[in-house]
Computed example of a mutant assay.
Amino acid sequence: MGETAGKTIYEAIGGEDALIAVVEDLYRRIFADPALQGFFTSANMPRLKGRQVEFFGAALGGPMTYTGASMRDAHAGMAITPEHFNAVAGHLTGALLDAGVPQATVDEIIGLVAPLADDIVTTPAATA
């Protein structure tokens, strides 16, 4: 899944070390976001970050195997709205851009992540 000029996205962005840095930055951003930080108060963060690196590594064509629960099972009962999902996607975009990933590659990564909303979002969008 996901190739850029003959390389996998995983290789193009710098492999595991780059993913670890992006995931660290992603969670710094999430914990700074009042709308998202509450989802992680009881999480085992080292384990979660490790699973996140595995997930992205596998999804972006790296040699990793994702060993976590399905997206649906991992997020069941969490009352995640489309707004929450979009906020995390925005933080992921920022973390990737700040890591020097080109916009076109960021767009490709977000395109791979976006369909996961169907399994992650469990609560309808808020209405005004």
Results as ranks from 00 to 15, higher is better:
Ile30Tyr: 00
Glu108Phe: 01
Ile110Leu: 02
Val88Asn: 11
Leu36Asp: 00
Leu48Phe: 04
Val106Tyr: 04
Gly68Trp: 03
Ile80Lys: 03
Val88Gly: 08
Leu19Met: 05
Thr81Ile: 04
Asp118Phe: 11
Thr65Val: 11
Gly38Met: 00
Thr123Tyr: 06
Gly77Val: 12
Gln37Lys: 06
Ala58Ile: 08
Gly77Met: 14
Pro63Lys: 13
Arg72Ala: 08
Tyr66Ala: 02
Ala35Trp: 01
Glu108Met: 06
Lys7Ser: 13
Ile110Thr: 04
Thr123Ser: 13
Phe85Ile: 04
Gly2Tyr: 03
Tyr10Met: 02
Thr93Ile: 14
Gly68Val: 07
Val22Asn: 04
Pro82Phe: 01
Leu19Gly: 02
Tyr66Leu: 09
Arg29Pro: 00
Pro82Cys: 02
Ala117Leu: 04
Ile120Phe: 09
His75Ala: 11
Gly94Arg: 15
Ala74Ile: 13
Ala74Trp: 10
Gly2Arg: 05
Ala126Phe: 07
Gly77Ala: 11
Ala126Thr: 12
Gly90Glu: 06
Tyr10Trp: 12
Glu3Asp: 07
Leu36Trp: 05
Gly50Phe: 01
Leu48Val: 08
Ile120Lys: 11
Ala99Cys: 12
Val121Leu: 01
Ala79Val: 12
Gly62Val: 09
Ala79Leu: 12
Thr105Leu: 14
Gly111Tyr: 02
Thr105Trp: 11
Thr127Ala: 15
Ala43Ile: 09
Val113His: 00
Glu83Trp: 01
Ala74Arg: 14
Phe31Val: 02
Leu19Arg: 02
Thr67Arg: 13
Glu54Asn: 09
Ala76Asp: 14
Gly38Thr: 01
Tyr10Leu: 05
Ile109Ala: 01
Asp73Tyr: 13
Ala128Met: 12
Gln52His: 13
Gly61Trp: 07
Arg47Ser: 08
Asp119Glu: 15
Ala32Gln: 01
His84Met: 10
Asn86Lys: 15
Ala99Ile: 10
Ser70Gln: 07
Ala18Pro: 06
Ala69Ile: 10
Ala58Asn: 11
Ile110Asp: 03
Glu3Val: 05
Val88Leu: 06
Leu96Ser: 07
Ala95Met: 09
Leu48Ser: 09
Val101Thr: 15
Thr127Ser: 14
His84Glu: 06
Gln52Phe: 11
Ile30Thr: 07
Leu48Gln: 09
Arg47Asp: 04
Thr123Lys: 13
Ser70Val: 11
Met64Thr: 11
Ala128Val: 14
Ile80Gly: 04
Ile20Arg: 13
Arg28Trp: 05
Thr122Leu: 00
Pro102Gln: 15
Val101Tyr: 12
Val113Phe: 02
Ala125Leu: 06
Met64Val: 10
Pro34Met: 09
